[in-house]
Design a protein around this nucleic acid. Sequence first.
DNA 1: TTGGCGTCTGGTAGCGCTACCATCACGCTA
DNA 2: TAGCGTGATGGTAGCGCTACCAGACGCCAA
Lengths: 340, 340
Amino acid sequence: MSQRRGSGRPTIADVARAAGVGAITVSRAIRRPEQVSRELRERIDLAIRELNYVPDPQAQVLASGRSNVIGVILPSLTNNVYADVMQGIYDRIEGSGFQIQIANTRYSEDEEDRLLQLFAGQRPAAMLITGIDQSDATRAYLAKADFPVVQIMEHAPDPIDMLIGFSHVEAARVAVRHLMEEGSRRIGFLGARMDPRMLRRREGYRAQLREHGLYDPAREAMTSAPSSVSQGRALSGRLFDAASDTDALFCANDDLALGALFECMARGRRVPEDVAIVGFNDLEMMAAAVPAITSVQTHRYRMGKMAIDMLIDRIEEREVPERGVDLGFQLIVRESSRRG
Amino acid sequence: MSQRRGSGRPTIADVARAAGVGAITVSRAIRRPEQVSRELRERIDLAIRELNYVPDPQAQVLASGRSNVIGVILPSLTNNVYADVMQGIYDRIEGSGFQIQIANTRYSEDEEDRLLQLFAGQRPAAMLITGIDQSDATRAYLAKADFPVVQIMEHAPDPIDMLIGFSHVEAARVAVRHLMEEGSRRIGFLGARMDPRMLRRREGYRAQLREHGLYDPAREAMTSAPSSVSQGRALSGRLFDAASDTDALFCANDDLALGALFECMARGRRVPEDVAIVGFNDLEMMAAAVPAITSVQTHRYRMGKMAIDMLIDRIEEREVPERGVDLGFQLIVRESSRRG
DNA sequence: TTGGCGTCTGGTAGCGCTACCATCACGCTA
DNA sequence: TAGCGTGATGGTAGCGCTACCAGACGCCAA
């Protein structure tokens, strides 16, 4: 009983003593019950409950060399989009025995590199990262890391390891095509933050219009500031001032779309009669707006959940059927763009 | 070189060998450089850089008995309010050497109890919890825990340990008083989720109206469903149907307020002429709406940041001047309630 | 009977770090 | 000169757990 240091909590040795077995057998009874005879297992379980024993995860990690921490690198914590992803992540982690360690790059590639270094020092069990635009150094590092990696939010042909997302270019094309089908020809673009996903949506917008000879750079209003409803008002206001005959807006984010709707209200432009509006992500409020706003639905929650699913499968050495998953998207048409 | 297990990474022993000193001196040079002579310090620093040595946090925790994990228990991850709090938390943690471990109660007290047990098993360095309505068991446990605890989001006289927040009752009273001053007499209430904070806002609403003999239970529309813009539409619609002469709405959340605004638009009720609207939290979109929506500004980011500040001060055994901090709130008056 | 094999169990030696205590050199006082 | 405090350094023994290997036991085939 020379307990010089110690936390005061029961240890595996206490359980072993109480159950009259060796410490290692307790360890096995916890991790691989099938390797321990039924009788001992029951005695050990009883002792565990009586002592209220909880294994010390730090010691487990140190002894086994296996960590139970999944690192998650997201560009933002406040953006609704990533909040939904996080919800999916945490819902899947719940009860899995793994822990999430979140970090936030604020949309900076340098930060991403730095945070990755930091995580690496902690020997994560797996890593989840956002997007497909990592620096060469990061890609190289992750490619030879000995833990599984999943990239989320975008679909692309060459994942570092695993990938789950959808095509922003395609989603934007579908949205713009819809505006064209409803009769718009002078279609504007609103974008903020201009992160890689945003740029791909703009790419889809441009490609779709170019194919029909309708692209006009004067109808693009963009800012590197974060996306917000106020930015939506400011950008759409700027666009209306510069190209007042614009008859539709493809907004690369829902808050921009909502801001555009308000700006139209403030200027007396009718939606959808004078200006049709389409948003992106289909946040809850889109359906409640007046008029309800058309938007591209994306599967953010599922993306977070499935990403963790794939990582855990790989950590536990199960087959992962598909390394690159395309979750797709769906255009939800509402009044803001319906002219039929 | 009998490296039977090992991670392959350099250890403190490697650094010690390279620098020609004892392992413990390396340990000290890292944690308390002032206790090591300048000469050795320089040799050790050099060896660290050459070997690219990073201390293993797991081993540090195990050996020292001190954890660097701060547990954070929030009721929701997707609610904008807590997203802002989290941003503050992570901004303060950045570079501090501490780690955040988030858990999500989904507004359930049972979950809170369970999660707390789980955290306790990991010997956190500190705990941050939301609100002041913990179960007796949780309160008792935390009160005698050997780590600092901070409660956030509300102000109250009897913190478990430390507390930072504001009075929801007072904030609601100020909002309702403002509506009265602008000439409203038949003031309704919209509430969703009905968590403790929401109930206190309702309490403030009721108290303010009762003082003036204006309280009418028929003007309250509530749901236990999560707050959302759609709920704002549904609840305000229900209220207009039941008490159609309602001339103002105090909405206990901004998304409800935005929904109410949309519902007014859909029904042709003018805001603020027919119905004045006040929200709660002052999310960014409130200022961009048309009309702009009056709301109670709360200091969510600061709350998260300061809470971690206080915890770290206490972990590092610095004086914390005030155990209960009232951050207050501010009514931001905009067109949606201005009739003067 | 012997040998071989599989199943269950335990002892020992770490994982990488730090607490605790011992040691030693040095300078100062009596 | 002895004695002693002080500051710098290092050795040892853990922290709580698991990998590795050895041993015990039962069973079956030869």
